[in-house]
Design a protein around this nucleic acid. Sequence first.
DNA 1: CCTCCACCGTACTCAACACG
DNA 2: CGTGTTGAGTACGGTGGAGG
Length: 706
Amino acid sequence: MAIGDFNAILSSDDKKGGHAKGRRCRFFGNFMDSTLLHDLGFQIPSFTWHRGFPSERLDRAVGNDAWVEAFPNCLITHLPRIKLDHRPLLMKFCYTDTCVPNRPFRFLAGWLHHQNFPEFVKHNWRFNGNLVSTMEELTNKLQEWNKGVYGHITHRKRKLLHKLARIQHALDFSGSNSLSQQEALVRDELEDILHHEEILWKQKSRYPSRSLPSNVFLRLSFEDVASLGKGVTNEEIKSALFDMAPWKALGSDGFQAGFFQNQWDILGEAICEWVKKVFEEGTIDPEFNNTLIVLILKVKTPENFAQFRPISLCSVLYKLVMKIIANRFKSIFPKIIGQEQAGFIAGRSIIDNVIIRVTNGMLNFLVERVHRQLSSWDAKQLSFAGRVTLAHSVLLAIPSYIMQSTLVPKGICDSIEKLVRQFIWGAMEGGKKLALVGWNNICQPKIHGGLGLRRLEDQNKAFLLKIGYSLITKIEALWVQVLRAKYGFHEVLPVSIMRSRCSYMWKVVAKTWLLLCKNIIWSIGNGRSVRCWEDNWVPTVGPLNQYVLDQGIIISQSKVNEMVLDNGVWNIDLFRSWLPEDVVNRIISIPPPSESTGPDTLSCARTTSGVFSVKSVYFMLRKDSWNSKDANWNFVWKIPGPQRVRQFICWANHFFSTFKVVTEHRPNQSTTSQNSSMCFYLNTDGATHSVSGFSAVGGVIYDGKG
DNA sequence: CCTCCACCGTACTCAACACG
DNA sequence: CGTGTTGAGTACGGTGGAGG
C-alpha cells in the first residue's frame, strides 16, 4: 500500500478546468499495471489539489490484491485544505466511527498547571466519609470543568473545519471569487485556532520532571515481627504514594498517582482514613478494585492477537494499598523490587495458593476449548498442510497458558492430542480417519522427518522446569524470595524440595526437581560450594562418581576447591588415578577455582550460553525418542516451492517408506454414482529407494468417463 | 505433630481389534 | 503392515482420617 502525492493522474476524470484536457500519465499508469496495484478509491470531494481554477486528483492511495483482501473496509477521505494547496488524505480501516462514545474519564496532567486548578479542587473536594462517592463526584466536576476551560477550542475547531469543508466542496463546482475570499478567511481563523490548540497540548503534556526521593523506606525493626501487623501510619501512606511514578500508568478510574501527590494537602486526610479502613476491615471497595485490561502493541503493525500484550491497570488507590503491603515486606526481604511491579508480583504470588487441587474434571475445559476451536474449522476445506499449520499455531498454543503453572494430567494431554491428530488427518465431527503416519513421527522436529509439532506432556515439563530454574537462579525476584522463605529453601541446590504441606505449584515443581538437577551445571568460581564427586560441574560428562569403580575410596563430601595444589593448578594426578583419561582432559580445560572469581554459580547445562530456554529443554526431554537425523529431511524442507508441497513430500516419504511399493489406489466407486460428470479421479503411486532413501510420487488425473 | 492405613485417582502395560 | 482405540489389570503415590 502506498499513499501520498503521486503528482500524476490516471484518467481524464482526475482533472477539471485549466487549458488542456486531463490525460492519463503513461509512466504512472504502466507502473500501476506492472505492479498489479489498484486505486483504493476515495470519498468526495473529488479533487485533492487546486491552484486557481484547475483542480486535479494528484494524491491517492494504491494497494495490491493482498491489501484489498486484508482490509476490505479501508476508506480514503479527502480532508479540507488548510495550509497547502493539497488536501491531506485520511485512511480509515472501518466505516463505523471508531471513537468509543463513552470514552472513559482520564485525568490530564496539564490540568495541574491551570492557574485555577488548586482553587477548583479545594472547592469541589467534599469528603463525606465515603471515598468512592467522593471520587465519583470529583470526576464529574472535573469533566465539566474541562469542558468549560478547554472545551470551547475543540468545539470551535470542529465548527470551522465543517465550514471550510462546505466552502471547498462548493469551490470544486464553481470557482466564484467570493467563495475563494470566504475560504481564505476561514482558513486564517482555523490556523489561529490550531496554533492555540498546539500551545494548549504542549502545556497539557508538560509535567514536572520531579526527582523521586531516593528509596526512603520505613525502617521497621526486624526483631519486631508484630510490626507487620500494626496499624498504618499517615507517613507510611504518604511516602508510599509519593514513591509512585506520578504519570507513568493510568489507573482504571482515570486518575494517575500525580494527581493525588499534587493535591495531597486537600485529599490526604481522606485517603489516609480510607487506607486505614482497608487495613482494619481487610476488604477493599469493589469500585477501586476494578482492573482495566489494556492491550498494548508489541510491534508497530500487529497481525495477530499474539502481538498484543495485555496489561492490567488497577486504580491508584488499589496500588497504594498493595504498595504499603509490599513496603512492609521489603524490610524483611533485603533486596527491593521494581517499584511499579509491586502490585503485579503481589498478585502473582497468590496464584500458586489458589490452585490447590487440580483434577481431570477441572482441566476438562481445556479439551473442550480445543474441541470448540477445531469444530469452527472445516477440516475438508483445508489442505493437509493447512491443517498442520493450524494445529501448530492455534491448537497446541491454547493449553500453554495453563501448562506454565500446572502439571496437566497425561489423560488431558492425550485427549487434546487425539483431537488434534484426528483434525490433521481430516476427520469430520465424530468420524474417524486412518492415520497414515504415527503421531510420534509427526511430533519429531523437521530435521528428523517430523512436522515440528510438540508433545504437550514434555512441553508441560519444560515449562515447569523453567519455574524450578528460576527458583534456583533468580534469587533477586520477590516471588522467588517469598516461595523460598515459605518453604525453607536455603541451600543452593537441595536434593529435593518436596514438602508435606505445600501448594499445588510447589508440588509439581518438586516432582520435576530431580530432572532439573540433572540438567543444571555448576560454573566453578571459588569452588567452595560444589561437591567434587556428586555435583555436575564438568560439561557433558555428568557427576564424576559414576566413573569411579570403587565408591569406597572417595570422600563424597570433598569440595572442588580441595582439588587444587598450593600453586593454584588442578591436582591432576589425583584425578588421573580414579578417572578415565578423556574425563581428566575435560577437567583440565576448566579454569581451576580461585578466590578472585567469586562464588560458584549455576546455569543451564543444555544450552551453550547457559541461559535457560523452554525450547532447548523440550528438545533435551524428547531427544531419546527421536529418529535418526537424516540430511535428506533437511533437503526436503529446503526445496523451493510452496510449504504444502514440501509437507506432501515429507508425508509421502513416511508413508511409502513403510509400504515400499504401493499398488494402485482405486477410486472410490461409491462417489461415481453421485455426479459422474463432475468427478475427477487421482491415482497416485510412489516408491522409496531403500538404499539412498530418496522417494518419488506420481499421479494420474482422469475424469468420470475415464 | 507424627505415623499408619484404607481409599482413590492416575499412569503404565498389554492384548485385542478396526482400518485400508 | 503400521496406526490408533479400548478395556482390563497392575503399580504407584497422594489424601485424609484414626490413633498415638
